[in-house]
Design a protein around this nucleic acid. Sequence first.
DNA 1: TAGCGGTAAGTATTCATTTACTTATCGGAG
DNA 2: CTCCGATAAGTAAATGAATACTTACCGCTA
Lengths: 186, 186
Amino acid sequence: MPRDADATKERILAAATAEFATHGYAGGRVERIASQAKSNVRMIYAYYGGKSSLFDATVAEALRRMAENVPPRPDDLAEWAGDVFDHHQRFPDVLRLSMWAQLERPEATAEPSEAYRDKTLAVATADASPLSPVDVLVFVYAIAQAWQLSPAGLTGLEEATDESETVAARRRSVVIAVERMLQKGP
Amino acid sequence: MPRDADATKERILAAATAEFATHGYAGGRVERIASQAKSNVRMIYAYYGGKSSLFDATVAEALRRMAENVPPRPDDLAEWAGDVFDHHQRFPDVLRLSMWAQLERPEATAEPSEAYRDKTLAVATADASPLSPVDVLVFVYAIAQAWQLSPAGLTGLEEATDESETVAARRRSVVIAVERMLQKGP
DNA sequence: TAGCGGTAAGTATTCATTTACTTATCGGAG
DNA sequence: CTCCGATAAGTAAATGAATACTTACCGCTA
């Protein structure tokens, strides 16, 4: 087995993502991360300093990936919501991780205020609804994430046909809902 | 100091609500609950059986209170969303608690499936949009909770005028967003 | 041979749960 | 009415299992 510090670092980060997404910060176990990463506890402390720093790094990386993969589309917010839906469908860890970060370590999520400001301004130019740009952003996010955040007892109420068709139908609903919310109305 | 089992039980439940809402299940400390309730650990085990049972009882009670205070209004979903917003504004613990329950103990949230079914059917009758009744419920919930679930970095972007006026404006936005989403459109 | 990537075996706390014990309340026997 | 003892409410301290974090050590590679 070759020695590769960077590869080990990445394996630790991947394992931490899965662990923290599943169990949260308080429920996450350093030892499970180590063994899952086929490494050991010592390396976690060597590379990431501690549990909390590792958690923060995990969250930051997940958000970075998301921003990279789902760039803002102020001109077509409905389709953008659909893309956000797709991303969360493909990487469920991201949403769980950010929910947990918000609940357990709000200070780790507080930073990206500036990133939002840009989107807000972009939205402001292309919108004529009675909703303010911040309103629009808040609600579009909410709708895009609605399915993944809803309790299973509610989402399980749908007729269980084809799995992939159900997902596709949900995505279509997301797009329609945003369209209707933002349409130039009476 | 008088002896009152029921009062002690209630104090424990109230303390548990605050503790779990703040720290979650894994982060919640039994001893903090005991001292906050001006009781002690033994009583928690006597009355609630253990940490997990206490957590479940806490969640169930919060959801029960919510269902009691914000009865469904299938005929006016927009105003109902406004009421849900108000409730979460007044009792922030409820939303945090249910988020945590969903993340940490999904089995404790899985039950109320039947309660949803009724709402779904009620909505089905009074709706003519391209969205299915389940769609509608999911999105209305999402919009009603959007402000309280949004990261602070985004909600903090609003002009900070009067505090209560900001809240009122947000509520108005919630109602408008749902109205627009559900309006009989082109 | 020097230093870095890696391993494995501690250590010291923290925390849920239990055990052993004390005090109040109340219904009925004297 | 009064005392008595059973039962329920309450307290404090112990136990034992996890758990975050460290220390001491190994061996490859440059």
